[in-house]
Amino acid sequence: MIQAKDLTVGYGDVVVLENLNFSIERGEVFVIIGGSGCGKSTILKHLIGLYEPMKGDILIKGESIVKADWEEKRRLMKSFGVLYQAGALFSALTIAENIALPMEEYTKYSEKEIMQHVNEKLKLVGLQGAGPKMPSELSGGMKKRAALARAMALDPEILFFDEPSTSLDPVTAAMLDRLILDLRDRLGTTMVIVTHDLDSIYAISDRVIMLDKEAKTIVARGKPSELRKSNPPPAVKEFLERAGLSRKMD
């Protein structure tokens, strides 16, 4: 579904990550992990076509998003949705208008049909009745769920999540994790998640890659449960054993 080939990313002349190679399968929950500042969000922004890599290529459904012109990029972007760290809901629009926007632009649905779909999406994320509210009237968790509803507006094949559990309390974060798994199971959506929340990593990921700031590349990959058992490098071990997770894994 998604393939990164010899990918080198950075800012200006500074290389943040280099020679990354990985692929993400259809219907998989793929998690990109690593400590703060290792370039997780940077790689995500390259995968969704916001930044151009210094070197290498990114294929989405076999098509290069790096080499695509704006129209091709636009077509590819319609096939995925993105949940940003802070939700990135359009603050001047209501929640319903936020979710309706992609449908108004890309579908031929009537106004009534759009509202029907908006209500369905809101129900899916457990926000029935929140449509007329403004984003500023919602709590952090509700904003994230509303943003997820917007990301799913066009029923995308891929969903990208940038730190979905950041600024959420553990209960809400766990609820969001359940929602992600539920959506994957029900709709078969491919999920690409950037996080450093260990609970989420173990709860939802099928496969992870771990990035390292010093090595500037992928230092571990595989199923999270197998990673710890496979005598990983010290940095990976330290990361995975934080917060007493070793006990949890045992």
Binding site: K78, F80, Y84, F90
Partner: peptide
Amino acid sequence: TMKVSEEIDAMVTMGF
């Protein structure tokens, strides 16, 4: 402000 809150990024990745 929209840029700071990633609303512009969201707009671009929605293909707008």
